[in-house]
Write a protein that binds this DNA or RNA. Structure first.
Lengths: 242, 242
DNA sequence: TCGTTTCCTTGACGGACATCAACAACTTAG
DNA sequence: CTAAGTTGTTGATGTCCGTCAAGGAAACGA
């Protein structure tokens, strides 16, 4: 695969140069040689909103880094009730190590760009590089922390608190669109009302009503259904029940 | 610390001989030499029901293996609402690697026996033994899977389904008391109604009513409040919504 | 023995959220 | 342009589960 040499990036594959995963993500654990080896079998691609990433056969044997966009992980009961069990933002890792088939579905909720590689390559590298395994362990621990926080939200918070918690979660994970004000924050919601409902264990009607309430009470502003401005983060945090 | 030699267990510390964690738990990753090193700083102890394991100062700097009994991990909102975010059975590992302070409380819900060691020792061994880190990663991934399954239960199941799911969870993790029948299963509930409610995001009254309903419908029998007999596991699984 | 506490069950009632339904604002196809 | 589909909002109504209250059963200490 492509690669070039220059003063500052000797030996790093071109594919990886501007890649966020190389800094904050898993690939940060690899030295230039390993990056080259991995990039030989890796492929970068852009998928549209709604694309199924895991559940279809193609990707079961591949791991991916999320480079941009948002991916939802869902589980579905036999009768169709659905729950989002995780949201992956860049530079998160996608795929369940040490397991052949996935117990969840993964679907792009925005346009998503991915860098993916064969399972076998990653697992071989993990044996050579303890640092890679360490990063994977750390990311898994972080996801476990997040899942447990969300258990509290689903189990013990009211609908109003759930919606406020959701807005704060997104605000923390999406790069805000401009604004130097530390009290306020603006961003585009990556999820539809239906996805938000599936994330919060509510119906779309309840989500809509709670957003309306936050709007009429002056805590947030909503434009074009998707763009949200939080006027006072601290105040919204109080509404989130913690 | 104590150790002895014999034909079958040369060099394995006496402390570890009959230990379940040495087979299915983390210590299975260690060779006899490492076991000896670890056992020099490890201490085994029995704690009574209700003992706080994490949250008190003593244990923050120690990791533990659960050797028997059940530990609940809880989170609490500012106003006191509580949610159990995990149950640890033998031979689970207790403690959050790479983090100084815990974001949760851990409390014994039965008499619990623990084997604990200093954080520093474990983290040093992890660097030497990739196999140890691998086991820790695997256990963390398993806990993440369980937490995500529970998100579905909290977010999308009815009270009746939640209680049925809970009984099945316990049945899977507690050694059943005798009985060769594969359809039925009997065990003692390790949790009070209040704990069950905190696990399911319900009130104790609702838990009690749902248990009564399962009882009157002939799916289970309950003796002395704690002892449960599931008559037909498959039928209960259908009640659990999957 | 009795009182106290803890744990659990059961009933009556109300409220938070789901369900059902109508409609508005956009988008896309023809 | 109109028609049809998608996405979101709002209102009316119902229901599941929380809240409040009373009381039984077992454990424990005085």
């Amino acid at each position: 695969m492509l690669q070039r040499r220059d003063v500052h990036n000797s030996d790093i594959p071109a594919l990886c140069h501007a890649c966020e995963a190389r800094h904050r993500g898993l690939c940060g654990a690899l030295d230039p040689q390993q990056l080259i080896a991995l990039s030989k079998t890796s492929s970068r691609r852009e998928v549209p909103t709604g694309a199924e990433l895991i559940g279809e056969a193609e990707l079961v044997e591949r791991y991916s880094n999320v480079l941009s966009g948002v991916v939802k992980l869902t589980k579905t009961l036999k009768d169709g009730r659905q729950q989002i069990v995780g949201l992956q933002f860049a530079p998160d890792f996608l795929g369940r190590p040490f397991k052949a088939e996935s117990a969840m579905n993964a679907e792009a909720v925005t346009t998503v760009s991915l860098c993916s590689f064969p399972k076998a390559t990653v697992e071989r590298m993990m044996k050579e590089s303890p640092e890679l395994e360490r990063r994977l362990l750390n990311q898994t621990l972080k996801q476990l922390d997040e899942a447990r926080d969300w258990l509290v939200t689903l189990g013990r918070k009211t609908a109003a608190e759930k919606v406020a918690s959701f807005l704060l979660l997104i605000a923390r994970n999406i790069d805000p669109t401009g604004g130097s004000d530390t009290r306020s924050k603006a961003f585009d919601l990556p999820l539809t009302r239906s996805d938000i409902a599936d994330f919060l264990g509510l119906t779309i009607e309840t989500v809509s009503r709670q957003l309306t309430k936050l709007r009429t009470q002056g805590l947030i502003r909503i434009e074009n259904n998707r763009h949200v401005v939080i006027h006072d983060i601290a105040r919204l945090e109080r509404r989130a029940g913690q």
